[in-house]
Amino acid sequence: MLKRIVSLAIIASFSAGAVFAAGAGAKNKTQDWHFEGMFGTYDKAAAQRGFQVYQEVCAACHSLKYVAFYNLGDKGAPFYDPEYPNPNDNPVIKAIAKMFTIIDGPDESGDMFERPGITADKIPNPYANEMAAKASNMGAFPPDLSLITRARADGSNYLYSLLTGYEDPPEGMKLSPGMSYNPYFSGGNQIAMGAPLTEGRVEYTDGTEASVDQMAKDVVEFLTWAADPKMEQRKRTGWVVLIYLFLLALLLYGSYRAVWRDVKH
């Protein structure tokens, strides 16, 4: 047992990015993301479009189980509106929630019933359970997307590369039935998910042209937010803390010099 596991084991956590990319298929296509860097924030318009892509394309098979509707209207979230600091009052959030059907219950007679979503609900799963999901997808389980960009090395670039990376298999390669060729897929070159994005698959409400590249970027922006919804608060707090600590270090260094002034050391 141990030997098998050990022989499987590799890879530094800290150098993971490069090594993973090299180990599993093609190297990720790198994008300049709005959320990168110490000042990075989410591009709200892109993330809103990304939510539309998720809702109209991905949600048919992929759950987003850790995201509640009110999360969508939190500070730093795609649909945040400063007029509604409490996202549960935000009419946009309420309207989004209402579009989803929630299975609730049991009622007095012991039956489950359907009702429109409210802001407190989480985004519902497309399948009743994992087995049902597998049964509908020829044995492949469409993973939950709440953490997908953090659960893959260099996740945002990886996801973008994957979504835009479908191509015809190289000559002589025989794909297993139902599989598609994608050189970026971390589990090998064959992926059970068919190319999800096609030109004009969604019609953006803001008039942006829905090219595959655009939709991929938008949905990555959205899913990166979904995986790390508090990033903007975190970075903002980080700056305050770093500046405070820097000033405190200066003061303490002054104190240190004052205390040690008469001492040769």
Binding site: F14, A16, M38, R150, A151, A227, R234, G238, L242
Partner: peptide, 13 residues
């Protein structure tokens, strides 16, 4: 605040 995932591993998500 800026690199919280750098000490961990993606698989733990």
């Amino acid at each position: 605040f800026f690199k919280p995932d750098s000490m961990g591993h993606p698989d733990n998500f």
